[in-house]
Nucleic acid binder design. Structure first.
Lengths: 348, 348
DNA sequence: CTGTTAGCGCCTTCAG
DNA sequence: CTGAAGGCGCTAACAG
């Protein structure tokens, strides 16, 4: 029937032909800079584009211009509310700037992080944003760092949301301070003995929170016995299991349990409750993050509130602003929020 | 010092030069199909690529091959656990197939949906997957449908996770049946009077769940008075406010409240609790979705369980499998899960 | 198997 | 302001 190809999108050339102008003019009318093309031509081109349902081929533009308008986001697990909240902020900020976001999930496996970056790099994104705790083992970061450096050398930008462990721009979440501030407030509330569900030993975020809390608690005169530091996964189930282990070790004297994130706290609460422990009467509990969808659990969870969405926004700002050192840091401070799960403790 | 350009990634041509082979050979060694290149050359090329930190330019490949290995995902709100769970499934399935996923959020604004598709289309993804309820107003879908059709005509694939409202492949979540099944079980549990927090009137998903439940409940002999159907947003706050409105209308005789999704149910619970209503003693409550991170709320929430991750996987399968009609449907059935929030009701 | 040569779709000088 | 032509990085015939 018509001369349209059965498959394949309309091309700029076809649009130009339909509008009876040159390819160059069509290009200028559609994607070129401001009013530089005769209004009449412009109209014709736009009309042709519309009827042909033209959609500019971003890949072609990218190779022609030598650059994309894409940002790549790498998270550990998109179904975890911590990451999805940050992702939400990243996406909003990106969209405001007309950027497309490409996303990858490491599923909490460090090697996948490097593999992902390797692939994403091929996209030539303006920036690669890595969200997620670094590990203590520097070794695993070696390859990743190399890959990232190569990306930077080629003109890309790297932004990390985690620990300023690698030499890139980073949103530095002050876990240690946040946990310490929480400890301070809880001591003020009368707590004297605490247990800490520390999370994975090699996860920096977990470690900073755990030691930040424990150190502060000790500093205020209540050192935490090592047997009350129980490790586990950084997940709900990790919290559940850790609580079980804690109980096995006997938690008779423990007044308060600090889980290094909210999700773990919730898991711990589920376990404790299942064994008849009353919360917060028998034991108080606190988390970290202040996950939005968890604000309605009972008892309301004391935690350290982090501006997750904002962190996402800041990450893209940091990634895209020119006047930034290649390794500048933006500190983010969490604020302790005391709720029902840690009532005032009056000692007899 | 060296001849490396200060900026810009290494190019295949540079790799070829460094390895002293032709561009074509380098291409074949790195991205070409199987063993067709002399092992020695291959080694040289790979070595050169490594030292130059070469990363294939995906955009260029896309232009040359006339196709990408990307899938575009459009969700209403990535920070909502419902969507992030589905997104997780999509990403996993995509990664298994070596696909990169690009993601966009409509922020629950229908017009943005069309705008997003328009942009994403430029990427020439293999498929565009739209996740989120359709609206009742056909009108808003008109433009979107056109855009999507154009995308398909150009060889792309469209997959929807929602209602089979538009003529594309769709994962059809049987909300109506799920809600009806829940109603049946609750009637068996002794419930005779229910209120429904119906969500937004124009959101099909909400509507199907609400009427599915109400119709079934009526069918079993317990029609629901219209004043106990209270609308609201599809969010936690929507549930909170709807519960408040419900209470205003007097919920004395209501034994059970069905919120059309878990998040709303949680909001409603928060409100009720804040006014001294005991759950589930004073009133039972149920939701829909079975959001993972909400499984530990108290009392444990009765709901209709949906395999969210699986839905995401199926969406990419449906999108990519060739032996599928352009408008095939895959039904997904939710299963009612009764928990503490709806105890057996024994009438005096 | 290898190298040469066209393009892919688009942008961008560069002359008219 | 417009059109012709070259080039972006890579793949895919096509000859050697």
């Amino acid at each position: 029937m018509s001369s349209e190809r059965a498959s394949g999108a309309a091309t700029l050339e076809e649009v130009a032909a339909a509008a009876k102008v040159s390819l160059a003019t069509a290009s200028r009318a559609i994607n070129g800079s401001a009013r530089k093309v005769n209004p009449e031509y412009r109209e014709r081109v736009l009309a042709a584009a519309r009827t042909l349902n033209y959609s500019p081929n971003l890949a072609a533009q990218a190779v022609a211009k030598g650059g994309t308008s894409t940002v790549a986001l790498v998270v550990a697990d998109i179904s975890d509310p911590y990451f999805s909240s940050i992702a939400s902020g990243v996406m909003r900020a990106a969209e405001e700037r007309g950027l497309i976001v490409t996303i990858g999930s490491t599923e909490r496996r460090p090697p996948r992080e490097t593999a992902l970056v390797r692939v994403l790099r091929g996209q030539r994104p303006r920036s690669i944003i890595l969200v997620g705790s670094r590990l203590a083992a520097q070794e695993s970061d070696r390859e990743l760092g190399d890959e990232l450096k190569a990306f930077e050398k080629a003109g890309g930008r790297v932004t990390m949301v985690s620990q300023p462990q690698l030499p890139f721009r980073t949103i530095d979440i002050r876990n240690r301070e946040g946990a310490a501030a929480l400890a301070a407030q809880l001591v003020n509330h009368g707590y004297r003995s605490a247990a800490v569900l520390t999370g994975p030993a090699d996860l920096l975020t977990a470690r900073e929170r755990a030691t930040g809390f424990a150190d502060a608690f000790a500093e205020y005169g209540h050192p935490i016995d090592e047997r009350w530091l129980v490790p586990g996964d950084f997940t709900r189930d990790g919290g559940f299991l850790a609580a079980a282990e804690l109980r096995r070790r006997g938690l008779g004297e423990v007044e308060l349990i600090f889980a290094v994130n909210d999700v773990m706290a919730v898991g711990a609460m589920a376990y404790l409750r299942s064994t008849g422990v009353r919360l917060p009467e028998d034991v108080a509990i606190a988390g970290f993050d202040d996950i939005y969808s968890l604000r309605d659990i009972t008892p309301a969870l004391t935690t350290v509130s982090l501006p997750l969405e904002l962190i996402g926004r800041k990450a893209v700002e940091l990634a895209l602003d020119d006047d930034q050192d290649g390794d500048s840091r933006v500190p983010i401070h969490g604020v302790p929020v005391l709720r029902e799960s840690t009532p005032l403790l009056v000692h007899a």
